[in-house]
Structure formats: structure tokens, C-alpha cells
Amino acid sequence: MPEPTRPLVSGATLGAGRHGASQNNLADTVFGVLVWGSALAVTAGFLWLVGEIVVSGFGAISWEFLTSEPASSGRAGGISTILVATLGILGICLAVSIPLGLGTALFLSEFSQGENRMGRFVRASLDVLAGVPSIVFGLFGNAFFCVALGFGFSILSGGLTLACMVLPILIRSIELGLRAVPNDYRVAAAALDLSKSRMIVRVLLPAAAPGLIAGLLLGIGRATAETAALIFTSGYVDRMPESVFDSGRALSIHIYDLAMNVPGGEANAYGTALVLVGLLLVINFVATHLVERFVSGRIQSA
């Protein structure tokens, strides 16, 4: 979550007495070098990674690339079918995770105050869920959605697996948004004998909207970035999917497949990576700024 980054005590005021004992002076200098070095290393890594993807990927991207189907295992052609499959998986994921996530977050923030066993159980299990490695989600999705429920390798299986995966992050950020709404509103609504449902729909959700949307975007970002959970659930057929029961290849899997299994697929892998990174940067940027705008400004509603 973005917060104002201005330090309470800035670097300038901290350590005003740096010209103390000489051995401290040396330690201070060495430490400063390490700190600046780390920051430089992180920045350099960022520039190297993003630079590499942008410079090498830019040539591959064109309108043609986005709208044509992949050819010869993805070496040639574009990524239209991949984009469609990605959207399909994302759509299924959101259709399931939004109601479930919103419901759970509302329960946690509005109906489980104090010592509530159910609330504690849900919270604890979500904490564990948040840490489960994505490949384990892949195993589970394969065993449960593909085999046990018989959905096979399909967009449906992939979307449902991702829904399980983004649920913790979605719930956590929605709950934060709901808790940020001043308690005054809830008390006032109770004193007016408004029903909880009306209070939630008319007062709470509009007031928390920016937080909810930011949480949603974070979830979308997480889902779009995911690869390992999808290999064995949505599969990697690169044809145009005709229904949610068809296998479909997500952007991230396309990158993996082109890089590892298709000799000569590198150029299009760069292109796809640039599309994916670009997409995610936009999503994260919007989420961050939405939160900042609404946190700093007044919460208002139509």
C-alpha cells in the first residue's frame, strides 16, 4: 500500500553529530557506502531488467502482433489468441473471487468484532493461503478442478485456481478499505435504525470504493502475473479458445514456452514480456494513484 514516504526525521537531521569519535566516523562512512550501494544495486537491476525487456521487445510489438494468431509454435505471428485466453482466465477468476472476497471482507470487518471464533479461523486460514506457493495451487487446481470436478485443462480450471490464489490479497485489501471508513457512519446508521444491508450498500461501499478498486487492481495484477499455477490447469494450447472449457494459454505461459521450449522464439518472447510488463505497470500505477488521490482528498460519492 502506498503511504506518504516523507520521513518523520529526515536524513538531514538524523546523525547531526556524525563528526564524533573517529572510529564511529569510519563506521558511519562505510555504512553509508553500503546503504547507497544497495540502493544503487536495486536501481541498476531495475534499469537492466526493464531496459532489456523494453529495448528488445519494442521491435516485436505492433498492431499486427497484438491482433494476429501465433504461427509455428509462436515463433511467428502474434498473440491474439493468448490475449483472449488471458482475458478469459481473468474473467473467470474475477467472477468467482470478487463476490467471495467482498463477502468475506465484509464479514471480517463488519460482523466479526472482538472475540469471534469464525473470524479468527478465517483470518488464520487466509494467512496461510497467502503463503502457499503458486505451484502448490497448480497441483491443487489440477487435482481438484481438472480431475475431480472433470473440467480438464481449461480456461475454467485456470480461472478457478487463480481465484483461490488471489483471494487472500483481495480480501486483505478490501478489508483495509472497509476499516478505513470512519466508525461515525456506522454508529449514525445504527441510531437511525438503518438496516445493516442498506448501511453497507448505501454508505459503506461508496465510502470505501477507492480502496475496493485498488484492492481489485492488485488482485488482477497478481492473477495476470501468475504462471506456475496455470501450467497444469489452463494448459498451453495456443489456438483460439471457443469456450471456457477449452484449454487456453496465458501471456505468462507463452513467455515461458517460447523461452524454454521453442528455439528461435526469443524475439516474440521479448514482445510478449513487454506487453505483460506494460499491462502490469499500468494496473499498478492506476491502483497506487487511485489510493493516493482518495486518501488525500475527501471521500465523496454520487
Binding site: 470512519p182 461515525d184 457512519y185 454508529v187 449514525a188 446508521a189 441510531a191 437511525l192 435504525d193 438503518l194 438496516s195 442498506r198 448505501r202 454508505v203 461508496p206 465510502a207 475527501r298 471521500i299 465523496q300 460519492s301
Partner: peptide, 27 residues
């Protein structure tokens, strides 16, 4: 409904002036 309450800090809902009045009326 029979016993109304006004709080220490003004706490209008983050809605329009009209909706603040309409919300309890409609309810």
C-alpha cells in the same frame, strides 16, 4: 426510531445533503 440521537462530532454520511435525509426516510 422513537429515540433519535445526535453525536458529539457531526457525522453526516459521505453522500449528498439530500441523500442524508432520504436514506432514513426510504428505509
Amino acid at each position: 426510531r422513537s429515540v433519535g440521537m445526535v453525536f458529539q462530532r457531526p457525522n453526516p454520511f459521505p453522500l449528498s445533503i439530500r441523500d442524508n435525509i432520504w436514506l432514513p426516510l426510504k428505509e
